[in-house]
Amino acid sequence: MAQEIEIEFKNLLSEDEYQKLYTYLSFETVEPIEQTNYYFETEDLKLRSKGAALRIRQKNDTWTATLKEPHPDGLLETHDQLPKETADLWMNNQFSDAPHVEKQLNKLGISPSDLLYIGSLTTHRKERQYKDTLVVLDHSFYYDESDYELELEASSKQQGEKIFAELLTTYQIAKRQTENKIKRFYQAKLKSE
């Protein structure tokens, strides 16, 4: 499927909160995943101005281009699988072979030829099923920053809100306004310039 609606809840964590969830939810038995997001934007920040974001995610030996756009129930994600050689071209500002993403970019009035590679963020991730949701613990690294994050993916907004609130309450974690990874990446990028 080239498109899907992502219903996701996020909360930044302190290192202690991360360790608490790691232990209490038995994440030590889960295989770690390392993934790297390579981010793209236009020089005049057209994607950002439309609330959208574009990345290639490298996970194991797969490379997936994903355009995220606002949607009433979460985020509309449009995907294209890429061979590594094509991903390498993208990081050299030569865009091709992403028909689904390109179609959506055109709808936003953005030409792929205007895109620029702006940097990467690497995440050490653990995922597990929990009460019909997917609970994710992330430790991310970008520029001179690192952070810990709880994510919860659900099939409905109502179910996700309920389980997410339950997790925060049960483990006494303060609910925090949490920007998505690309916004945190941008903030760190601006600080480093």
Rank of each mutant, 00 (worst) to 15 (best):
I163D: 01
P83C: 12
F141N: 14
Y142N: 10
E145H: 14
F95L: 15
D132R: 12
V135H: 01
S96E: 14
S113R: 11
H71A: 13
Y148F: 15
D132W: 08
H139V: 12
D138Y: 06
H124E: 07
N106C: 00
Y117S: 07
Y143N: 15
W63K: 12
L150N: 07
A65H: 01
S111G: 06
L152T: 00
T86F: 03
N93W: 10
P83N: 13
D73N: 14
R128H: 11
Y117W: 13
E149H: 10
D73I: 05
M91F: 07
Q158W: 00
R125S: 04
T66M: 06
D88M: 10
H124S: 07
K162W: 12
W63M: 15
N92P: 08
Y130A: 10
E127V: 05
K162Y: 13
A87C: 02
D144W: 06
H100M: 02
W63E: 12
Y130R: 11
H79A: 04
E153H: 05
H139Q: 14
L89W: 10
L134C: 08
D88Y: 07
Y148E: 02
D80L: 12
H139M: 05
I110S: 04
N106S: 10
P70D: 12
A154P: 00
H139C: 11
A87S: 08
T133N: 08
D73L: 14
N93T: 10
Y130Q: 10
